[in-house]
């Protein structure tokens, strides 16, 4: 028996919105410690990793490790039937080929039940090595979203460069070019508005803006985002989910031909 109740059901809606343009099917890998999802886009350019600890659910019950394969289209249709303040309970019995979703309004007056057929998804699991990054930059998520959107007006690629002077985003195309520099904040009222730059080594990488713009669909999940960069390595973009989980996107860099 697997059962997990998310008090803030809107978090599930936001998670699905954040990944539905990148992947079509996902496996929920459920264990006693929580739920994880790993999925790659069809072009093998980016990877989504979702980790949700069991402490984010009340109750959480997972008697035996179970993998639940779901089509995101069906999942998206179902969760859209939940109100933002509903709780969402996910239930699956061993040996059945369905997953159940129960939505409850905060006052308990309205409950809705939906069932989706499980799918057998052949997913390739990747080993993600522990990486010591050259630079780790934490910034407001809306700021990162804005930069990616603005830069994609100029070109298909963005160059991200971290130096002791800060982080620079640049793009160029037929029309012209642009550069945006961010420096570490000194005095900020709210922690979530802070720009924090950890620099071990200067780093300079190029990425496809198309994918970064997909990743920024996760902006409603968190006020902050962390970019972890290492020379000749994939970028890791992390959106925390409350204090119990995270959504990470890995993107392979563009390399010189």
């Amino acid at each position: 028996m697997f059962e997990a109740r998310l008090i803030q059901g809107s978090v599930l809606k936001k998670m699905i919105d954040a990944i539905k343009d990148i992947v079509t099917d996902i496996n929920l890998d459920c264990s006693s410690t929580g739920i994880s999802v790993q999925a790659m886009d069809s072009g093998h350019v980016c990877l989504v990793l979702i980790e949700l600890g069991s402490d984010g659910f009340e109750p959480y019950r997972c008697d035996r490790n179970i993998t639940l394969g779901l089509g995101l289209k069906a999942l998206s249709v179902v969760v859209r039937c939940a109100n933002n303040d509903d709780s969402i309970t996910i239930k699956a019995q061993e040996g059945t080929d369905n997953i159940n979703f129960v939505f409850e309004s905060p006052n308990g007056e309205k409950t809705s039940q939906f069932e989706i057929k499980l799918m057998d998804i052949d997913s390739e699991h990747l080993g993600i090595p522990d990486t010591e990054y050259d630079s780790v930059v934490k910034m407001p998520s809306h700021e990162f979203q804005r930069i990616c959107r603005d830069m994609s007006q100029l070109g298909d690629s963005i160059v991200v460069a971290c130096t002791k002077d800060g982080i620079q985003f640049s793009a160029s195309g037929d029309m012209g070019s642009g550069k945006i520099n961010l420096r570490q904040s000194s005095l900020v009222d709210k922690e979530e508005d802070q720009i924090n730059i950890e620099l071990n080594d200067p780093v300079h990488l190029t990425f496809a803006l198309r994918y970064l713009n997909y990743f920024t669909k996760a902006t409603p999940l968190s006020p902050t985002v962390t970019l972890s960069l290492k020379a000749e390595s994939p970028l890791c973009v992390t959106y925390p989910i409350g204090d119990f989980g995270s959504m990470k996107f890995f993107l392979a860099p563009k390399i010189d031909d």
């Binding site: 093998h44 990747l126 080993g127 090595p129 190029t206 890995f250 392979a252 390399i255 031909d257």
Partner: peptide, 14 residues
């Protein structure tokens, strides 16, 4: 112009 590299160049299949 730079070309898009594959993620499998960096991460191994388990």
């Amino acid at each position: 112009t730079p070309i898009q590299n594959d993620l499998l160049e960096y991460f191994s299949l388990l």
